[in-house]
Design a protein around this nucleic acid. Structure first.
Lengths: 346, 346
DNA sequence: TGTATCAATGTAACCGATTACATTGTTTTT
DNA sequence: AAAAACAATGTAATCGGTTACATTGATACA
């Protein structure tokens, strides 16, 4: 284990008979240093294989140029797309990401938050776990003026910006679309209404029913963890209903797909017997047959927006209070799984 | 923007009338400090909201407890699963991840490598981009004794460990399975055979053909980027073939799925007319109809192994030279898309 | 009782940058 | 030609830990 010594600004300064201050200034392209000196320094740095020591700077500047990201899960299509968006912006702006997953548990989320805090991230991007009730583990950031932006699974915190879509409106559109197809007994499958995304979707669903004089029925509300397997189980419950529902609006595509597969296996025709709408526009939605009607969710854009907004805050472009909520456009994508009218006439 | 001052070991030392050395030792639970003193220090640290400054340590120790991860794409099921595995191990061991994506281009991979290098990662985990020919951008790490582990898309570098599956064997099994189903005109869809994964799968495919006295035919080899859209295009090419092939072995599930959808639309029956085998065991493989036979790819495990192996190196548990290649178990999962014999009898 | 041993703590150099303030030499102004 | 203005560079303190080496005081041993 030889440990080749690192080249520092001291080495460069000594070789060129200038001070470390000049070297430091030259390396950050400070206009106060003459062009000639700069060139000498740049060339020598290149030649000697100098590399910048971020830790020295961070120690001195009390900044880290690091952004902490906490997501519920890394291995979901939606989340990895968001992260790809975040990464592209952060990378461009010279920020480094520390990414961790809460695995949908509040406990791990708290641990992760602590790690991020101790790593002195300059800012945080967070999407909350299913079962996080209390968000006091983020108070430490707020207390230290570390900007915190929630995305997707947000929390209505007075000091934080959030980036999301209009879940309520999207759910309203999805449900209205089903009603327009003649559906009246519409099941909604969703997760525990703790997180905004599920609360809002449920609200949109109820509103659409109300606006069309369809009473909301508790029995048509199925709560699970929205996994594909949960969709299969939901299908079993649905098959017990009498009369059968004529439509299902699931709060994500994965669950919808699991449910569709199970129902098809049971001989249900989709959409003729039961129409389907999902949420997210996950790639599986165009693989399942019939293709799944869903809400397009701009994940990459969401990542870009969240990161850009955070970095703007960090650079002092706009104050953290200026923006409360950034709403991204989302839209209903109508595919075969919900088109009763056309499919009946086929 | 008030900037509340940070509590440091100096503050703790002053309050307790001990030296910073004692505080530093106590905080890392050095047995040389008496229990009583330790308790005092811990309690005060808690009370005053002390937080550890990693940068000061990193600056002093010349270590960063950071691992750099470069992947071709973040938003693929396989990769995000691998990263989830890496994250879980790294987090447990107190390491932080810096993750970036090459977007499948050598150029961005080089930039990312430079960023990682300048961030002084303690080690690297890399999966190469499609079009990386020359891997000299990783020499800087090797020169500085920074361990580098490749996973999945590996490079046969004499100084690096690689974590992968036996692609050749898996492809051999997949092809042999198709031959056992009576297939003789087997198309192989894959990416440019630059990366080991594609080279090895092609080799396995060819070997299986040879072992069953089936001549390899160039026209049955389709090269594309393995996206779902590329699968659709491949379907168009396949429909031009006369006679039609009787099986397709695709180097990933996404491409297989795109191809299946397009062929089905054209009236081809699967597996009766054309049998299908994919690669990766992506979730879509159980959504597509018929369900896709594929190779199970232990992504999470691969991430865990790669991270654990790297951290072992870093902790000096085993030398970097000790291990050359770690092969993970993978297996053929037979589903309906390839079962000609059974499906004919249905 | 004198000395060796040891536990507990302290001193101070060091890691590699940034930057306020000081200094030097040159040009411009009057 | 002296004073003012300015461009270029230097000096030295600072960020918050780690740790080799030194010191202190108590106990064990002969």
């Amino acid at each position: 284990m030889t440990k080749p010594k690192e080249v520092t600004i001291y080495d460069l300064a000594r070789k060129l008979n200038v001070s470390i201050a000049t070297v430091s200034r030259a390396l950050k392209d400070d206009p106060v240093v003459s062009k000639k000196t700069k060139k000498k320094i740049f060339d020598l740095a290149e030649e000697m294989g100098y590399r910048y020591n971020h830790f020295a700077r961070n120690l001195r500047e009390q900044r880290t140029y690091t952004i902490g990201v906490i997501v519920p899960r890394l291995n979901s299509y939606f989340m990895s797309t968001v992260i790809a968006g975040i990464e592209s912006v952060a990378n461009n702006e010279g920020y480094t990401l520390i990414i961790s997953q809460s695995s949908e548990t509040a406990g791990k989320e708290i641990t992760n938050a602590k790690t991020m805090f101790n790593n002195r991230v300059d800012g945080m991007l967070v999407s909350l776990a299913y079962d996080t009730d209390d968000i006091s583990h983020f108070d430490q950031f707020i207390k230290k003026n570390i900007p915190l932006i929630f995305f997707d699974r947000v929390n209505d915190h007075p000091e934080c910006t959030s980036v999301q879509i209009d879940n309520r409106k999207s759910a309203y559109e999805a449900t209205t679309h089903l009603i327009a197809q003649g559906c009246r007994r519409i099941v909604h499958i969703t997760a525990t209404p703790k997180r905004n995304v599920y609360i809002d979707r449920l609200a949109g669903y109820k509103q659409a029913l109300a606006d069309h004089q369809i009473p909301f029925e508790e029995k048509y509300l199925l709560i699970n963890n929205l996994s594909q397997e949960a969709g299969v189980q939901a299908a079993a419950e649905i098959l017990q209903m009498n009369p059968l529902p004529d439509a299902i609006f699931a709060a994500n595509d994965n669950c919808a797909v699991g449910c569709m597969i199970a129902l098809k296996k049971a001989g249900i025709r989709i959409p003729a017997d039961i129409a389907f709408v999902g949420f997210n526009n996950d790639p599986v939605s165009t693989v399942i047959e019939p293709n799944l009607t869903t809400i397009n969710y701009p994940g990459y854009k969401m990542g870009e927006m969240a990161a850009a907004s955070l970095i703007n805050h960090l650079n002092g472009v706009n104050s953290i209070d200026a923006t409360n909520t950034i709403l991204l456009r989302s839209e209903l994508i109508i595919r075969a799984s919900s088109q009763k009218i056309i499919s009946d006439s086929e």
